[in-house]
Design a protein around this nucleic acid. Structure first.
Lengths: 310, 310
DNA sequence: CTATGTGATGCAAAAAACGCATCACAATTA
DNA sequence: TAATTGTGATGCGTTTTTTGCATCACATAG
């Protein structure tokens, strides 16, 4: 969209906090970019940026204006999506910010099914922390966010939630694997590999451990779920996971021969965590994003039934 | 705002339903305008206008896009107003659509007081029918509307109302002028000059007349309030008016020597009409407009006290 | 059929945007 | 303290975009 160029440029400068850096990203010279900004400031009647030795920074007027730019950009995308929908085939671009939990199996499967029906819809899937995901909604860099505990921003509008019981994971020949249900006291002193402290799952688990005065033998911490899961086959340790981050058949078909098993942790020890699916409060989503949100909710309903709230 | 040019042009073409006519209004050639439209349509990926022999007409996509343009334009005005407010002096432009009732005394006085405090705020005051005023809100050509009965659109958000009792107006030496309160039966057969049927006041009066089976001797109909009022000094006739359309002192100081007197019509015969002050539902007004709305409500409160609802 | 209106298009002129080289200033580094 | 590095601003020639004129193709009304 040609007429958005100047606005896009200003947004880029605001994000980079530097005209030259933004110019590089935008593949133009800094002079051209500088002049566009000066021109807009001239039209507005007052500067939008403070000039510092280290670059630029938005002033109050700039904050207001950039906010306007971002909402208008999102609005334009929504209208374009709506217009494209008129021609029968759905087009558009859906940007999702989410933690790692859903990136493993849930989102690949759900996105694939949706794209099977609407091949003209494209996706951005950004794995990031819950805080960063909320921030992405605010700056309109993302349309939807899937966040597993906790929600901090008042701007987050929860559209659906899924209760996720904690599961203990281990090698199939681990002693605990014989139990159908795990109590925390069973785990006392067990060597464990856990996600790092910023993960919602870790926080949920910690509360239970403190309450029951249980200490694990935490041998490894990692923010890579890939590592956590694959390590289970190499050493006799336990780990924890929520259903949405596990292969679909690990729980539904637990008898199947598999090197790794998942056993639910008693809800009396660790309450179910909540996965929040939501958007920026008050925003009207583009058609493609709104329909994909429906898709997510449908899929969650099919998987977890009564544990879903809307 | 340079970056709005193409959008402004499209809006103009949509309103004029003709590229050449719009080009004339915009003071450019039709070829330049035509090219801008083709370019935007190309960027959108599909046409926004149907080409007819008599001009152009928006198609469905165009309707969506033009709606977007109008809200974006209004939003930009709001942000600009907000930015200007940062510098201390309030700037901005307030566009008001209203019936003739308030254009006579109420709005001149209220606008003058507001401009006394904020000289940098400019105004557009468009006198039009209630329907047209509601339409002006919808197309975002107006920020505020003052409409005296009835409200038809669901998009109209009433921000305040003022109950307005009907008054009978006549020359000071008219026989009815001796009564402090007028009953409709007093008016049977009286020669009367009335506003035309599309005025809210006329509709209100008609309901009362039918209910009481009273017929007036309607000798003149006019949509000019100026005419209606000034004619009273030339012929022994009665007319009707609501307080807001009368000079402030006509009711508050009725003993003052004046060629024309106003006497209230019994509420049992004709219920008070409602003056609605409102905006487009869901819209966030520019600072200047929002504050002027406060001004209106304050002024109504000072004049009519308990007859005001917010 | 003619006359008048419409939007579309080729081409040259005008206007705007761009990129290079450079300046002025501030912060950091040697 | 002096040199270096990084920042945004600006003059000037070049390139790209936009504009206006003339004209076409088409539809409608007289």
């Amino acid at each position: 969209m040609r007429f958005m160029t100047s606005l896009r440029f200003i947004d880029a400068v605001a994000r980079e906090k530097s005209i030259r850096k933004a110019a590089e990203k935008l593949a133009i010279t800094s002079t051209a970019l500088n002049r566009r900004i000066l021109q807009i400031e001239d039209e507005i009647g007052q500067p939008l940026f403070e000039r510092l030795a280290s670059g630029v920074r938005l002033n109050t007027a700039g904050e207001l204006f950039v906010q306007h730019i971002r909402t208008q950009t999102a609005e334009l995308a929504r209208v374009q999506s709506q217009i494209a929908d008129l021609s029968g085939i759905r087009r558009g671009h859906v940007r999702i910010a989410s933690g790692a939990d859903t990136m493993r199996y849930f989102l690949p499967e759900t996105v694939a099914r949706y794209r099977g029906e609407h091949p003209a819809v494209t996706f951005d899937l950004v794995r990031q922390s819950g805080d960063a995901a909320e921030q992405a909604l605010r700056t309109l860099e993302a349309d939807l966010a899937l966040i597993f505990e906790p929600i901090k921003s008042a701007d987050f509008q929860t559209m659906a939630t899924a209760r996720q019981q904690l599961y203990c994971m281990m090698s199939a020949n681990h002693p605990l694997a014989k139990k159908p249900m795990i109590r925390l006291r069973d785990c006392v002193g067990q060597p464990a590999i856990l996600p790092r402290a910023d993960a919602g799952l870790r926080q949920l688990l910690n509360v239970g451990l403190i309450r029951r005065s249980v200490e694990l033998g935490t041998v490894i911490e990692s923010n890579s779920q890939e590592f956590l899961q694959n390590y289970l086959t190499h050493e006799m340790v336990i780990s924890f996971q929520i259903p949405i981050a596990m292969p679909s058949d690990l729980i539904t078909a637990p008898l199947k021969t598999s090197a790794i098993v998942a056993r639910p942790v008693d809800l009396a020890d660790v309450p179910a965590g909540i996965l929040h699916i939501g958007q920026l409060k008050g925003r009207v989503l583009p058609v493609a994003a709104a329909k994909f949100l429906d898709s997510i909710i449908t899929e969650l309903g099919a998987r977890y039934g009564d544990d879903i709230d809307q």
